[in-house]
Design a protein around this nucleic acid. Structure first.
Lengths: 170, 170
DNA sequence: GCCAATTATATGCGTACGCATGTAACTAAC
DNA sequence: GTTAGTTACATGCGTACGCATATAATTGGC
């Protein structure tokens, strides 16, 4: 689906060499993963568990909850699919709602040093429990334990950066 | 990550029964898949191949290109992660740019019956080729052919609807 | 110690999005 | 045939987003 395979139906991956087939394989995998993500996201978004936050806002609360504590905007931006200004204003909103606090970093006056308030942590946990149950229901309904473990392993490997990637051809 | 596991670090999946462990397995798999998706999307978005369209707009062009031809808004909305009004206006933009045409359905005057213009099809192909190459580069850099096929199979199975899902416990 | 370059975050501005609701067309019961 | 109900899409309105740019703080050469 979407921002994805693009390579049109294509004749048959055969012209010459296996490169074509490998490209199609990769694009098919991406499209399937993309579609699965899209479908599940819609399903989760429809859940009535978000307590007035957007999924992105919850995502930030979750990331803060998971990662020890004081995170800077730059740290979060690596985890959230959002531009830096977008993230900045999203955090504004969370601060206004009393869920996140901006503390000053003694060693760098530019930094934001974001931390969850007690209320923010409590809300994250409340939403997290309900959402986690929904995720588990959706995932376990179709995949076995082995398949779940495999999906996790493949996903981790897909974006691992051992030292960089082996450029074009190793 | 994100709209995902939520179940906090959790002690150890052991309290009693395997249900806890299965839940954690499912949430870990979702988080890994979510993170991989997010990371790759950022990477693809940074590619200079979109010719002024957003990835969502390309997604609609791609879906139209892939699915025979006359698609209604309702058909597309199943494929795109966007609200119905959002999709309606996105299509407006594509029509204004001359990439998509709204035809009337003789059997249902409400329907939109969207089709790609020649220009729209050409642009989709142009973008698709470049994006497909980028996708292939990213995916094949980390995964073997077998792993790519496995990821595709797992993704397809994850959102298959054989007849509905086996409710709570089968 | 001073200034260019870089880093970390914020803001202006235009656009896109979601929610609620509107409008038009189809369906069906009577 | 009329009308309640439903389906398919569009529009008003407020908010969130991305891009470009601004501001403030830190670092590195000299």
């Amino acid at each position: 689906m979407r921002p994805s395979p693009a390579v049109p139906p294509a004749p048959q991956a055969s012209s010459r060499g296996a490169a074509r087939g490998r490209t199609r394989l990769a694009n098919n995998a991406w499209e399937a993963a993309f579609t699965a993500h899209s479908t599940l996201m819609k399903q989760f978004a429809a859940d009535d568990v978000w307590a007035g936050l957007s999924m992105r806002e919850y995502d930030v609360l979750y990331t803060l909850s998971k990662s020890g504590v004081p995170q800077r905007l730059g740290d979060l931006s690596g985890h959230v699919l959002l531009s830096q200004p977008g993230l900045s204003r999203l955090v504004d909103r969370l601060v206004e709602r009393g869920l996140v606090a901006r503390c000053v970093d003694p060693t760098d006056a530019r930094a934001a040093n974001l931390t969850l308030t007690d209320e923010g942590r409590a809300l994250q946990r409340r939403i997290g429990r309900a959402h986690g149950a929904s995720v588990a229901a959706a995932m376990t309904a179709r995949l076995t334990d082995e398949e779940l473990a495999l999906l996790e392993a493949l996903s981790l490997k897909l974006v691992s950066d051992p030292d960089s990637l082996p450029e074009e051809h190793p």
